[in-house]
Design a binder for these strands. Structure first.
Lengths: 212, 212
DNA sequence: TATTATACGTGAAAAAATTCACAAAAAAAG
DNA sequence: CTTTTTTTGTGAATTTTTTCACGTATAATA
């Protein structure tokens, strides 16, 4: 019925998968070999059926009456997300948000390795932060093609976001994680994910107002 | 039909409202008095019908054949979000992410004023960052009740998030914006909004894989 | 061994969100 | 003044996501 045969999958489910991964890794470290949906659901504050349906999309099946094999489920989720083979990323904009993300060690665990940061502030260029070199914007294109980097984290101010995004698209980047509070226009071949803090603040504001 | 008469509203719509606000403020600054859904949709890369339906939830109506009054729409959205009367917030955890958020001046525009930061690192306590004083955790409870603060931004490491969240709930905080990569358990009276970076990374990863 | 509790898998129902389709109003154009 | 274009508002259809209900398999218990 729908035109797109290759469906993307359920986005809310995809967004919950990392939570399972986090719990499962803890279980694995504790030597637990099996995990049930009820157990995962209580430790994450979700409904059991949500866990089962989410796991279903990864293709991993458990054993009736027993549960899921922890190691197999971890592999399955990582596989589904493409997080088992680490991919390199650039970070553009070494301001405070950029630095915060450079300091976030969770990315490594998720198969994302920030290999270089870029900025056009001469005071920042040349140095390094958390082991990641800060390079001038002029080096972006040559490095992108040389290192085959195709993910970029965009943490520049809103008014330069569009220009940088265009540059990134031009460099062959295929995914932009946009932290700037601006809508960026890129060719269709580039996936953009907006990390919009004000959206979350809006949701929280309304939830507080309605006492839930 | 549904049990809850006071429905929260459509969450995706709520999360998009700040985008309209951003564009509308730009228009207002440029002296534009009227804005149509088609114009808003093209500048944000959304479908026109999405814009119309989103605006519908705020209760603001436009004029057929003309559009929406910019000033009225801004007011209406701010009103709906509760962003017209500024509310104070605490930030707990003055690490790199905490500092990045303290430096994010967008909050002010969204009616959120961070009045104090808390940390238990003695090296940080006593100083200030971006004009916000960094106080010891021990001061949290007394200040919360004295200043009637009811929103907290949680930027502590994952392993102390639950403990701090419990403290916050104990202080009468009614909304927690959780940046820690952990599920926190709080009483029902407290709204939690998880800002899960790994969820976004998961979504981006899958989208890149499926070439869209 | 029989019974009970646990737990997966899945088709179907329900709810939420998006998209369509079109009537009606206003402005612009001819 | 009439026609065309633009645009809101909304009920309905569609799609997506969540939730339910139940069959079946496994383990534990009596």
């Amino acid at each position: 019925m729908p035109k797109n045969a290759a469906k993307v999958g359920k986005i809310p489910s995809i967004r919950r998968l990392p939570q399972y991964l986090r719990v499962l890794r803890g279980l694995e470290g504790a030597g637990q070999e099996v995990a049930s949906s009820s157990m995962l659901s209580t430790s994450l504050g979700l409904e059991q059926i949500v866990v089962k349906k989410d796991i279903e999309i990864t293709g991993i099946t458990g054993k009736t009456g027993v549960g899921y094999m922890v190691a197999e489920l971890i592999d399955g989720i990582e596989d589904y997300l493409g997080w088992n083979n680490s991919s390199d990323a650039f970070l553009v904009g070494a301001g405070s948000m950029g630095k915060a993300l450079l300091g976030y060690d969770g990315f490594r665990r998720h198969g994302l390795q920030i290999v270089a940061a870029f900025d056009n502030d001469e005071g920042k260029v040349g140095g390094e932060y958390k082991g990641v070199p800060v390079l001038p914007m002029s080096k972006l294109k040559s490095l992108a093609s040389r290192l085959h980097v195709h993910i970029a984290i965009l943490t520049v101010p809103g008014d330069s976001a569009q220009e940088v995004a265009s540059q990134l698209a031009d460099c062959g980047i295929s995914g932009i994680w946009n932290f700037a509070p601006t809508t960026i226009q890129v060719p269709e071949s580039v996936s953009v994910l907006n990390e919009d803090l004000s959206a979350s603040l809006a949701e929280l504001s309304v939830r507080i107002q309605s006492n839930m």
